[in-house]
Design a protein around this nucleic acid. Structure first.
Length: 660
RNA sequence: GCCGACAUAGCACAGUGGUAGUGCAGUGGUUUUGUAAACCAAAGGUCGGGAGUUCAAAUCUCUCUGUCGGCACCA
């Protein structure tokens, strides 16, 4: 007689059950309600099916209220309902993989041998079919198959991608006693390869889901492979949560910088210059303020600003390695004479090789290091067309770019100082929840492994010293060195690299940069490539979404709108505007004040200023003109009442310096 | 670049083979107004570009460009 199980419940109590007890039996022994709601169980820190026997140790029964339980339901929805529905409605399709994601699930399916491709119009019917499958409440049972038998099965059903997954599992030694787990729908016999767990019966998958969109996706994430059709779905425990999620998405889309930007007259895009913003006066004032702010920050931190050429001979990029690594993305300019190409130049795709040229001018000694060289240089990259995305991913952009030339000994301190500066800047700009990615050596790279070891260790150490937690992203480094990426999130949850710190032991040496050490040796300096905002375009895109266009006073394109009540106050309004413009300096000149002298009624003028998200509305009527005051109304509707201009100026001055 | 979709007035949209529409914005006029939309009028379009089918194309087909959702890429 095997020893009974000792099961520790989440409340700390211990329950003794006979050996062989399953999760389902445990749930039933606790309560009928729990038994009905259970979708899986965590036993001994491992998720498993309710049908599996338990081991002694901690147990936690999962329902849709647990994140893991919801994940199981999402998993069953895609693998058992969506997959089965696709196979039934579209003969000839081949199933690939169907994992869960943050808000739901997707399934990748090969439609190349189906009668026609899947279109978004098919989603409602597909979703209805899923609901039919779920409504059968079919039991889902786990089975272990010999790999060869299972491969024969999938060969028969045409799902040959599954066989590749099985082969991969064999290779990685992931079999369970030489077998592979599958899940079977007991009513239809549909079988999907899966490690599980799954809900015990389909009735437990909530009806609160929706197929949301279609996309292309490469098999195994490799563009050399077949492209599959990815079907996305969202699933939550209750309809209320699904509705709340969809509502949140709809609200988030209103913050989209691609909508707000043109609506606020900040910038626009046009076919004649894909991926390059036309910056309007109002958008450019933000650009100017931000650049000016960064310039001050860099100056204080001991950087010197330079400017390098726009169009550079290809030999520089051949020497740096960029020609080989990014040839496709260079904008080339051919110099032709009488039909013969004499020379090829490239629009500058990044500043670093040019900065090395400046470094190389004259002999450098260890006394010159660290040398911090900054440039708000204009760069052009011919990005893959499908990659372009508003201001976030563009072909033409400027960065708050700088390269720190330093000795190996100085590298750590410089990295720490950079992380500190970045943090201070992000705080000023209202970003506190950025996250950090450490991207390590890619397959295609230059330099020896021990140099990479050193560079990667330096970045990890820098994070540690600055108290930054990071996510490791293996293989995502630049070809010349590893990098820290400082990532910000846009309104619809997409992540964008903004700041970066890269340790480069290769480029300086490749381009012949060196300095004389104390002992008279000639050594190549270490280069730290770093940016805080990253692409100004991208950063402004993020800022627009962060503030929903309601910029803090110092960044606001129009900082105050003077609203005369009748045209008798137009002259006074102009005087007020002129006084304020002269009273307070900004990066674009004086305070950015406009007067709405249109013949609209005041109510309409306020509405328009509000829609333009102008922080201050200064209403002037006969009373104000008489008293030499303005009636101050804020963007949020607050009425501060009438005040003398000097009071207002002080208030604005304080607000500007606080950058709020 | 790849898969799927989309492109109609400045903006938001309607129009599925037979005379190109609505609202807002813009323009002209009237109104002189106290904290989120005054009134009237006229105007505004090579229906993204090109080719084709048809008596006839915004509408169907092909192609190019751009955009959107993803994938891949991101120095």
């Amino acid at each position: 007689m095997p020893a009974p199980l000792q099961l520790t419940l989440p409340d700390g109590s211990v329950r003794e059950m006979p050996a062989g007890t399953t999760g389902a039996q445990l749930a039933a022994s606790i309560g009928a309600g729990l038994a009905k709601a259970a979708v899986g169980i965590v036993n001994d820190d491992k998720q498993q099916d309710l049908s599996e026997p338990l081991k002694s140790g901690p147990v936690r029964i999962l329902t849709l209220k647990d994140a893991e339980g919801l994940d199981i339901a999402r998993h069953s929805a895609t693998a058992q309902a969506l997959a089965a529905a696709v196979k039934e409605m579209f003969p000839g399709t081949k199933l690939a993989i169907g994992p869960t994601i943050d808000d739901g699930f997707y399934y990748d399916v090969d439609f190349s041998e189906a009668k026609r491709p899947l279109s978004a119009d098919d989603l409602p019917a597909l979703e209805a079919k899923m609901r039919e499958v779920l409504a059968t409440d079919a039991p889902i049972t786990r089975e272990l198959w010999a790999p060869e038998d299972l491969k024969a099965h999938f060969t028969k059903t045409g799902d040959t991608y599954k066989n590749e997954i099985i082969d991969g599992a064999i290779e990685k030694g992931q079999l369970i006693d030489g077998k592979v787990s599958v899940y079977r729908n007991e009513k239809t016999g549909f079988i999907d390869l899966c490690v599980g767990p799954h809900v015990p019966h389909l009735g437990l998958v909530p009806a609160s889901f929706a197929l949301s969109s279609l996309a292309g996706a490469y098999w195994r994430g490799d563009s050399a492979n077949q492209q599959l059709t990815r079907i996305y779905g969202r699933l939550f425990a209750t309809q209320k949560e699904l509705d709340a999620y969809l509502h949140m998405r709809a609200e988030a889309e209103k913050r989209d910088h691609r909508k707000i930007g043109p609506a606020l007259d900040l910038f626009h895009f046009q076919d004649i210059a894909p991926g390059q913003a036309f910056w309007h006066a109002r958008g450019w004032s933000i650009y100017t303020e931000l650049t000016n702010y960064m310039r001050h920050q860099l100056d204080t931190a001991g950087y010197e600003e330079v400017n390098s050429p726009q169009l550079v001979h290809k030999s520089l990029y051949e020497a740096s390695g960029h020609w080989e690594n990014y040839f496709e993305d260079l904008f080339l300019v051919k110099e032709e004479r009488e039909g013969v190409v004499k020379d090829i130049y490239s629009l500058k795709p990044m500043n670093c090789p040019c900065h090395v040229q400046i470094f190389n001018f004259g002999i450098k000694s260890y006394r010159d290091l660290p040398l911090r060289m900054a440039e708000f240089g204009s760069c052009m990259r011919n990005e893959a067309h499908g990659a372009l995305h508003g201001l976030m991913r563009v072909t033409g952009f400027k960065q708050d770019d700088a390269h720190i030339f330093c000795t190996e000994d100085q590298m750590m301190e410089e990295s720490a100082r950079f992380c500190e500066l970045l943090h201070a800047v992000y705080q000023d700009l209202g970003f506190t929840d950025y996250f950090v990615k450490l991207s390590t050596r890619p397959d295609k790279r230059v330099g020896s492994d021990d140099v990479w070891d050193k560079a990667e260790a330096a970045l990890a150490e820098a994070c540690k010293n600055s108290g930054l937690g990071y996510v490791l992203s293996p293989g995502d480094g630049a070809f010349y060195g590893p990098k820290l990426e400082f990532v910000l999130r846009d309104c619809i949850g997409r992540d964008w690299q903004c700041g970066t710190l890269q340790v480069d032991f290769n480029t300086a040496a490749r381009l012949g940069a060196h300095y004389t050490t104390e002992s008279g040796e000639r050594l190549a300096p270490v280069m730290l490539h770093r940016a805080i905002l990253g692409s100004l375009e991208r950063f402004i895109g993020i800022l627009i979404e962060q503030y929903e266009g309601k910029f803090p006073l110092w960044l606001a394109p129009v900082q105050a709108m003077v609203v005369p009540i009748t045209d008798h106050q137009n002259t006074y309004a102009e005087e007020v505007a002129a006084t304020l413009r002269h009273a307070l300096p900004t990066a674009t000149g004086g305070l950015r004040v406009e007067v709405d002298d249109s013949s609209e009624r005041m109510q309409k003028k306020i509405l328009l200023a509000q829609q333009q998200k102008i922080p201050y509305m200064l209403v002037v009527g006969a009373k104000e003109a008489e008293a030499g005051t303005v009636a101050v109304r804020l963007r949020d509707g607050t009425d501060l009442g009438a005040m003398p201009l000097t009071t207002l100026t002080q208030r604005l001055k304080d607000e500007l310096s606080a950058r709020q």
